[in-house]
Amino acid sequence: MATSEKLSASQSRSLKITGEEIWKNKTEKINAELFTMTYGAIVSQLCTDFQRDYNKVNDQLFSMGYNIGVRLIEDFLARTALPRCEDMIRTSEVITKCAFKIFLNITPQVTNWSPSNDAFSLILLENPLSEFVELPMDATKQLWYSNILCGVLRGALEMVQLDCDVHFVSDILRNEPQTEIRIKLNKVLKDEIPIGED
């Protein structure tokens, strides 16, 4: 028991180091304000285009994120060459310590594990997409501002043969206590696993 715990502790430390090292030395950076404002422009334009039908905006953000995710996973794999994760626990560690660190320089916390260890929540303590944002009154009930993140996660996980449901549970922008995303594994797409891995 003790040795397997030690092993996973050292594995998660090495994930952290990988993530930090790539963020620091291997990726180009842009101005954070430019990033926040670009995303804000997208969301506000979508709200105008859909005439404030926030459900449609949520769906559109999700599908945009999905398209990003299916492509971003290749960048992530080419950069890190990490082996396949054995279970959702390891998957959650790779997502928070490596992926979020490399692309957004944040490390969400993982909590609320389901009893069968196939669903967990990410708590985002800071969210670079919504730095200076305040939602209008009618949006606070319906809009998930950072829904693009859910799409990215779903698309990326699907390309590594994990069919997951990803959705927001709460958002600080809506005057809720914390920003929480829930990821739940539906099934492993066994038929699509590339032949040659064991």
């Binding site: 080419a78 950069r79 082996p83 590339p194 032949i195 040659g196 891995e197």
Partner: peptide
């Protein structure tokens, strides 16, 4: 592009 050793994903395929 990268500077560390890595594990091959292709274990039993050609």
């Amino acid at each position: 592009y990268f500077k560390e050793p890595f594990v091959s994903w292709n274990k039993s395929g050609l």
